[in-house]
Design a protein around this nucleic acid. Structure first.
Lengths: 284, 284
DNA sequence: ATTAAAGTGTAATAAAACAACATATTGGTG
DNA sequence: CACCAATATGTTGTTTTATTACACTTTAAT
């Protein structure tokens, strides 16, 4: 996971031909894998021994060894593919497919993730007077999970899963508050209405939902989560996982942004939980 | 993902030396990757061209090409490693680490998974008169998520996250019922007590928790979920994801076990939800 | 401007992979 | 059971590929 990243690093001080080689490799690593020393040498306009020196300089035994490492890294990068469950699959196969599909969704979410949006969302959360989380159906438990995580911060947080209570609460928000709307499809009318309502109050509305969906259009900030899963037959599985991981990232970043303030509060929370344990020592 | 599996297939009809080679490769693929034709030839006690023919026979351009494919497959197999977040990590790095750690937990959960327990759990759920789900803290939202999934079956399902209500309900269970207790640590006293209470009523108690934990000891059936994550500082992230995926597997297997009965009910549920959509067409 | 150090290329060498051919093994048939 | 054809395997030789040794060039510091 570091080879290509290292080679792509422009700050690294490399010799002229080493740089040419690095560019070639980063440009099309897949092609390099099936090349000979001579081929790469002519591609990069350097001599064959230079290719070899480049490889040994990176810590490999030689060019073939380098290619092996490159092939490995590319194979690791290659996304897994979501696999649909068939009616006659064995339990073992079902499990394997679900793991595989979940991982596939995670990697594609990672690829599509908009870091700027996360940054902005962290800023909003850090400054917010209060945080309100809303979701329905499968997204209700995601909202509750986010609430649980945010409870570790000394900020008023509330998750609501009842459409009436949601509307009541959102109506009372102000520009100092933050509303987080969660929906996989981004098409649940009740939640879209809620986002509009929230926006009207001046609160910052963050959506954890499908990009370019109706809900996304009514949010100030969108943390996009997509997946190709077949929700026709089953309720969202992998997309919900992606939403939760997105929340993990958001909350963890917030914790780092808050720094010491968070750590102090964290300790206090931990102590208050200790007595709930069977061995009176372990944290949550 | 098929190369090594194919080579390990003993049923495949291979020639004598092809078999010797397959055995050598499967036995220590990592070693093969850094071998020359000659080295593998002498290891398998065959001639060098045989090695080459073996590779081309498998559809590769030659031995080096085969090694590349093998290296790729090994790299893909190699588990990812959970990475702890550092205070000065950038948002991008935090995101990358969280994705990586989540995937790492998923693969290790998959490795440790006890298929028999899943089978038995499916049987229990399929026969149960009612299903009660209990969890506290982070596991409360997992319980609610499981409830949401199980609501798609025509069985009475209820998730409870209030310790008083939980005890009230569990006291009323009978041997026809199923109680699912969810806890990451397996050390939350309230949940352990609940499992004991449930067992006393004769209900089948299923634990989604850490294997060999106090809670696990008080369950009839344990779906083990572990992770090496550092819960000292943050609330469970990756372990909760693993729990949710475990529930996905359980519910999906149950759906397959129920067969047509489930599909019919599923259609009815979908129709009842259609009117909640912005475009009145999309399912949940 | 000089010089040492690092970088690069040319040519030669060694190693590895592959191809062509010869031999052996297998499995079916009379 | 002997025979043949098809397949599999090994031996030798050739080609390709990778590496080494050495000479030349550039770079950077005094």
């Amino acid at each position: 996971m570091t080879l290509l990243a290292d080679l792509a690093d422009t700050r690294a001080n490399r010799s002229k031909s080493a740089h040419k080689l690095a560019v070639c490799v980063v440009d099309d690593p897949q092609a390099i894998v099936s090349m000979s020393t001579a081929a790469l040498a002519s591609l990069a306009c350097v001599s064959e021994p230079t290719v070899n020196r480049f490889c040994t300089g990176l810590g490999f035994k030689g060019f073939p060894d380098f290619k092996l490492a490159l092939a490995g890294e590319l194979a690791r990068k290659q996304p897994r593919i979501a696999q649909n469950i068939e009616a006659d699959d064995s339990t073992g196969l079902v499990a394997a497919k679900i793991f595989e599909s979940t991982i596939a969704t995670l990697t594609s979410t990672q690829d599509q993730m908009n870091l700027d949006a996360v940054h902005q969302a962290v800023d909003v959360l850090a400054e917010a007077r209060s945080i309100t989380l809303c979701g329905l159906g499968a997204s209700a438990s995601v909202a509750l999970d986010a609430q649980h995580k945010l409870l570790r911060f000394p900020i008023p947080v509330m998750a609501h899963t009842d459409i009436i209570n949601q509307r009541m609460l959102v109506t009372g928000l102000s520009s100092a508050d933050c509303l987080i709307c969660i929906s996989y499809t981004g098409r649940t009318e009740a939640i879209i209405e809620l986002a509009k309502l929230g926006k009207a109050t001046g609160a910052t509305v963050v959506g954890i939902t499908a990009p370019h969906s109706p809900l996304a259009g009514n949010c100030d900030l969108v943390l996009g989560v997509t997946s190709e899963e077949d929700t026709e037959l089953y309720t969202p599985m992998t997309s919900r996982i992606a939403q939760l991981v997105m929340i993990d990232i958001l909350v963890t970043s917030l914790a780092l942004a808050k720094g010491q303030e968070f750590l102090d509060h964290q300790l206090a929370v931990k102590q208050s939980l200790a007595s709930t344990r069977a061995d009176k020592a372990c944290p949550l």
